[in-house]
């Protein structure tokens, strides 16, 4: 049982929680995630550790309402308890001074990108962050990103804020204007696929943080498996970050949709 210390709305569907978890706060590094379960019959879902406060013994989670489980979590208030939480899991992001790094995030990928941007900056990189969303209201964490980035480029599909266009347009504009040593991308699988195709064309090394379906998060079940360079990898223990140019995104997209029908039914039951 982990106590929620504070709750803050970034938007109607994106919520930041600060949760008591002293051991995880101490052990975690950028790129790590936790598995969270709400209620006795809850599902175990992966969430990136966005930040940690060693003094307070807390970690920060940024959650987007998607289906049943994330909605149940988002219904909790400060003072409530999360039934189960375990971590930090996964491999930490490899951080060093690469030079110039473009961090391309979209949708809920912005939250897990936060600690990576901060760590890259701290290691001396020039960090250019591209945040993309469908529309202005869905842009989150812009202020925090500005704090840790040399430059933030905002892209909206409908042009309601920042530049009009997709995340790939933002990334391409940077590549066209200066030498980029590394690209990191986190977001919906389809977005990462197109970022990857783009950077492959320009031969910019790219890391993608994959958000596959997980059950245990500790390497026990294989639900999270993806093909990377023709080999099957488990995202929860071998990742979540992989060389984007080697990831079979089409297979990943297919597997992500695997439980869609059952999930839709469950969601219909809940509302």
């Amino acid at each position: 049982m982990n106590k929620i210390v504070s709750k803050e709305y970034f938007s109607a569907n994106v919520i930041k929680f600060e949760v008591e978890a002293p051991l995880i706060a101490k052990a975690r590094k950028a790129g790590h995630f936790v598995m969270v379960k709400v209620g006795l019959k809850g599902e175990r879902i992966p969430l990136t550790i966005a930040d940690a406060d060693l003094q307070k013994g807390t970690i920060t989670l940024v959650v987007q309402k998607m289906g049943v489980s994330s909605t149940k979590l988002c219904a909790l208030e400060a003072g409530d308890f999360i039934t189960d939480m375990v971590g930090p899991l996964g491999k930490a992001t490899h951080i060093e001074n690469f030079g110039t790094v473009v961090c391309a995030c979209g949708g809920v990928g912005t939250a897990p990108m936060m600690p990576i941007v901060a760590a890259l900056k701290k290691a001396g990189n020039r960090v250019i962050t591209v945040i993309a969303a469908r529309t202005k209201d869905l842009i989150i964490l812009e202020e925090q990103m500005r704090e840790h980035s040399d430059e933030v480029i905002v892209m909206t599909d409908d042009g309601s804020y920042g530049n009009q266009g997709l995340v790939t347009n933002g990334v391409e504009s940077v590549i066209n204007r200066e030498k980029v040593d590394l690209c990191v991308t986190i977001g919906p699988a389809i977005m990462m696929k197109f970022v990857s195709l783009l950077t492959k064309k320009y031969e910019v090394p790219t890391l993608a943080s994959l958000n596959t379906i997980m059950v245990d998060g500790t390497g026990m079940c294989g639900a999270c498996r993806v093909s990377v360079g023709g080999k099957t990898k488990f995202v929860c223990v071998d990742g979540p970050e992989f060389d984007a140019h080697l990831v079979d995104f089409d297979e990943m997209l297919m597997r992500l949709g695997g439980y869609r029908d059952i999930e839709r039914e469950d969601m219909a039951k809940m509302v």
Binding site: V215, M220, C221, G222, A223, R225, V226, S227, T232, E251, M254, R255, G257, G258
Partner: peptide, 10 residues
């Protein structure tokens, strides 16, 4: 890795 193929552990 098709959908519907899984380990017994899963």
């Amino acid at each position: 890795n098709l959908v519907g193929v899984m380990s017994s552990n899963e």
